[in-house]
């Protein structure tokens, strides 16, 4: 049998013994989550692209969509994006009250966006153009509704962070969380660009 004594001290190591967890990896991890979220929306957009013209003798986008309302909705989301940017700038300055103020303004614009979208949905369903009417309306409600759900959870997250910041101040943990939400919020705005261009404007064009 082998009688080679294994030198414990000089045992080669094939792994890093110290914990390798760089400081900023949260941002990259969150970015990867956003990219996977992007795939969800890509698939919903593809579904809409395939089924968006199947009206089942029902109403078409040109009959249903109210472009001035969509324009107001879009500006709400755009304004909330820039006010979140202001909140981030105040966070950099370590100004707690101003950060909370701009986060609040962002929340109000987000709620306005959601309110207008819910009004639009209620109006459509009331007119008999609910998600069960045609393939076009099914995928329209799925795509726009998924985006709306994201905004809803964004607002829940925003309120949670406002409570956190007001209780604990702008500690590193809260700054990190605010940066993650910043990416999430701006990402939702990017998705909305696709929605208003591809669904609303192209739909009305016919």
């Amino acid at each position: 049998m082998s009688d080679t004594a294994i030198d414990k001290a000089n045992k080669p190591e094939f792994y890093l013994t110290e914990d390798h967890h760089p400081e900023g990896s949260t941002m990259l991890g969150f970015w990867l989550y956003l990219m996977s979220d992007c795939l969800i929306f890509a698939v919903l957009f593809a579904t809409y692209g395939v089924l968006g013209r199947n009206y089942a003798a029902g109403p078409s986008p040109a009959d249903l969509f109210d472009l001035p309302l969509v324009a107001i909705n879009t500006s709400m989301l755009l304004l909330s994006s820039i006010t979140y940017g202001f909140a981030m700038l105040q966070m950099e300055r370590k100004a707690k009250t101003e950060t909370l103020f701009w986060l609040g303004v962002t929340g109000v614009f987000g709620l306005a966006f959601l309110g207008l979208e819910l009004y639009e949905f209620a109006h459509l369903i009331h007119e008999g153009a609910g998600p069960t009417r045609s393939a076009f309306l099914s995928c329209f409600f799925t795509l726009v509704g998924t985006h709306g759900l994201h905004v809803t959870f964004g607002i829940v997250w925003l309120v949670t962070l406002m409570v956190q910041v007001s209780m604990h101040g702008l500690i590193p943990e809260n700054r990190r969380r605010l940066m993650c939400l910043s990416m999430f919020w701006h990402f939702l705005d990017v998705v909305w660009i696709g929605v208003f261009s591809f669904v609303y404007l192209m739909g009305v064009l016919g």
Binding site: E23, G24, L28, S75, S81, L89, E92, S197
Partner: peptide, 27 residues
């Protein structure tokens, strides 16, 4: 470079104005 990049007031405003223009034109 692992700390997320920060914007400035100027860069946010440039982005905001550009996106307003780029939204208004297609509508």
């Amino acid at each position: 470079g692992h700390e997320a990049a920060h914007g400035t007031f100027r860069s946010y405003m440039i982005g905001f104005v550009l996106s307003i223009i780029l939204t208004a034109i297609p509508f």
